[in-house]
């Protein structure tokens, strides 16, 4: 148990269950499919973004551009649907293509120019936000029968909860990411890069290809999150989703993924998202608390999880001290 990398994941899941149990103890009506369905729907775009962020952080990087990419995608879709007669599905493909390519270019810059991901994606963040402004500075409503149809799709669970399309998309993305990360060579290379890029290179991992793909995945998923966000809000606004990248990072860290890379699970990210959503739901139910309590609780949770990771790392490295100490000697 001591060396299990799954321990942080279990702790996250336990935290979620405990938090949910506490919520139910106070507001028994929170135990309903309605609450669960809303939890999934309201956090769908954040969840999809966080999946991409999990890839990036697992590889030892960071992607600050995702919030802007969401805003750009929303405005792009809204403007395209307003000004042209392109079908939304084609617009979706276009948006995904642009954002994936954008991520890939950032990955290429990070790898070939040996730039820190922080700086490159920070530049990407400003660039995408700026492009969104160029398209429109105002909130552009989306009014299209295909959108209405997509929004009307849901599965009604017993108890009245409506599981909408976007919640389903998020769950599919999580499922897909789990398979990719654990069952494909690309996924294992993500972990390898996070362990040590130099060693991975020596072991024959193509760092260039993997890095480009990782940021392409993050960009593409941010684009998908943008589409989901536009379905959720029926509008595109260039000021939307400010700070989403930080929420996504928080969810990934609360989910037990090591910020230095190489260790973590996308399932943890899911529960990280759910914990954050749960706090908001609780505040809504309570009715007297201000919404900044969300931030405070998330801040405390983040601190706790970072401490926890540090502690775990300490325990695991403390176990084999002799070998490393004398290796440094000679």
């Amino acid at each position: 148990m001591r060396h299990s990398t799954k321990l942080p994941l279990y702790i996250t899941i336990a935290t979620f269950l405990l938090a949910y149990a506490l919520c139910i103890a106070q507001f028994p009506s929170m135990l309903s499919t309605r609450v669960v369905a809303n939890l999934l729907t309201d956090n769908a775009f954040l969840g999809i973004t966080a999946v991409g962020m999990t890839f990036v952080i697992l590889s030892g990087g960071i992607d600050l551009s995702v919030g802007s990419v969401i805003a750009f995608t929303g405005v792009f879709l809204a403007v395209v649907l307003r000004d042209t007669s392109i079908h939304p599905l084609v617009a979706f493909v276009l948006a995904l293509g642009i954002t994936t390519l954008f991520g890939a270019v950032m990955g290429a810059i990070i790898h070939y120019l040996e730039m820190p991901p922080f700086i490159v994606t920070l530049a990407g963040m400003f660039l995408m936000r700026g492009l969104a402004y160029v398209l429109s500075t105002e909130s552009v409503p989306i009014d299209h029968e295909f959108y209405d149809w997509l929004q009307s799709l849901y599965w009604k669970a017993p108890g009245g909860g409506r599981f909408r399309l976007i919640a389903g998309i998020m769950l599919l993305v999580f499922l897909g990411a789990m398979i990719v990360l654990h069952r494909t060579r690309f996924g294992r290379n993500v972990y390898a890069l996070g362990g040590s890029a130099q060693t991975a290179q020596l072991m024959g991992v193509s760092c260039a290809r993997s890095t480009i793909m990782i940021y392409a995945v993050s960009g593409g998923l941010a684009g998908l999150a943008g589409i989901v966000f536009s379905l959720y809000t029926s509008a595109g606004y260039s000021l939307a989703a400010v700070g989403t990248e930080l929420d996504a990072i928080a969810a990934v860290v609360i989910g037990g993924t090591l910020l230095t890379g190489g260790s973590g699970f996308v399932a943890g990210t899911f529960f990280g998202i759910m914990i954050m959503g749960l706090i908001q739901t609780y505040i809504v139910f309570d009715g007297t608390l201000s919404s900044w309590w969300t931030k405070i609780v998330i801040g405390i949770l983040l601190f706790t999880f970072i401490m926890l990771q540090k502690g775990l790392a300490w325990v695991t490295t403390g176990r084999i001290p002799r070998a490393s100490a004398s290796a440094a000697q000679s």
Binding site: R188, Y191, A192, G195, T199, M203, G262, S263, A327
Partner: peptide, 10 residues
């Protein structure tokens, strides 16, 4: 090599 060139996290 003396320092193991493998990935401890896998």
């Amino acid at each position: 090599y003396q320092e193991v060139n493998l990935l401890p996290n896998l």
